[in-house]
């Protein structure tokens, strides 16, 4: 009788133990990013790398080089201050909340999925440490010669070398892919980006983009930017 009883107890214990292990493993998997790390101490490149691989790498790739097929630009080489500003703009609906901003609408919920402000800081810090790249040109038909004349308007903020100027809120252009720059110029020109009243820097950029007559002018000026690398 005692043998029968012990066999029964083992028989019931096995599935219960299995379920318990399953639950514990599941709980551990959900805590890849320590939820307790919510202080300024958590703003480190190491934590930023973990967050980046969880939230950003699917589109921007692990090396930050981006992929045109999903409209995700190269972000490696962008300075920390610019990445943070843009992430905050996305989170607050200043950018990426326009009906026609297809890529921005995709980016906005991803920026909101970062749980806390410290996470934004950490990701920005990490992206700022990524090795810059010079993405291969993919836009055809740009006249860099004509673009160099048009670029005189841009260089007041972005610099003659296109390396940007933090004091003006102007990001470096030379590390960004040409397809992305053409697309963003179009968005600024059409009010898809920079039209939100809270977007002070965007409001500066909009009339500059509106000064470009058409898409060819945008290709030309971006063609010149590609020569500055």
């Amino acid at each position: 009788m005692s043998n029968v009883a012990s066999r029964w107890s083992v028989g019931w214990a096995a599935p219960i133990l299995g379920l318990a292990i399953f639950g514990i493993v599941g709980a551990c998997r959900g805590t890849t990013i320590p939820a307790s790390a919510r202080s300024a101490d958590a703003v480190t490149p190491e934590r930023g790398e973990v967050l980046y691989s969880n939230y950003c790498a699917q589109c921007h790739k692990a090396d930050g080089h981006g992929q045109e097929s999903v409209g995700a630009p190269s972000i490696a080489g962008l300075p920390q201050w610019y990445v943070k500003t843009q992430l905050m703009n996305f989170r607050q609906g200043i950018r990426g909340a326009h009906f026609d901003d297809i890529e921005g609408l995709r980016m906005r919920p991803m920026s909101l999925s970062l749980p806390a402000q410290e996470d934004v800081d950490a990701v920005s810090l990490y992206v700022g440490t990524m090795r810059p790249v010079a993405p291969a040109p993919s836009v055809q038909g740009g006249d860099a010669g004509h673009g160099s004349q048009l670029f005189t308007t841009c260089q007041a903020c972005h610099g003659t070398d296109g390396k940007g100027n933090e004091a003006m809120g102007a990001p470096p252009l030379t590390v960004q892919p040409d397809w992305y720059l053409v697309r963003q110029l179009g968005k600024f020109k059409n009010g898809v980006r920079g039209a939100d009243p809270r977007d002070v820097k965007g409001a500066t950029m909009r009339p500059m983009a509106q000064g470009l007559a058409d898409e060819q002018a945008m290709k030309d000026v971006v063609g010149h930017v590609m020569t500055l690398r």
């Binding site: 609906g93 909340a97 326009h98 009906f99 026609d100 901003d101 297809i102 609408l105 995709r106 906005r108 919920p109 991803m110």
Partner: peptide, 29 residues
């Protein structure tokens, strides 16, 4: 109603009650 990865955008008819006219109101979210 337009769905895309990963947002909903909406086009309302606006004051004239007709879709596809200049007074349509477009919103995100």
């Amino acid at each position: 109603v337009v769905g895309q990865q990963w947002a909903w955008t909406f086009q309302h008819t606006g004051p004239d009650g007709k879709m596809g006219t200049d007074d349509d109101i477009k919103t995100a979210d």
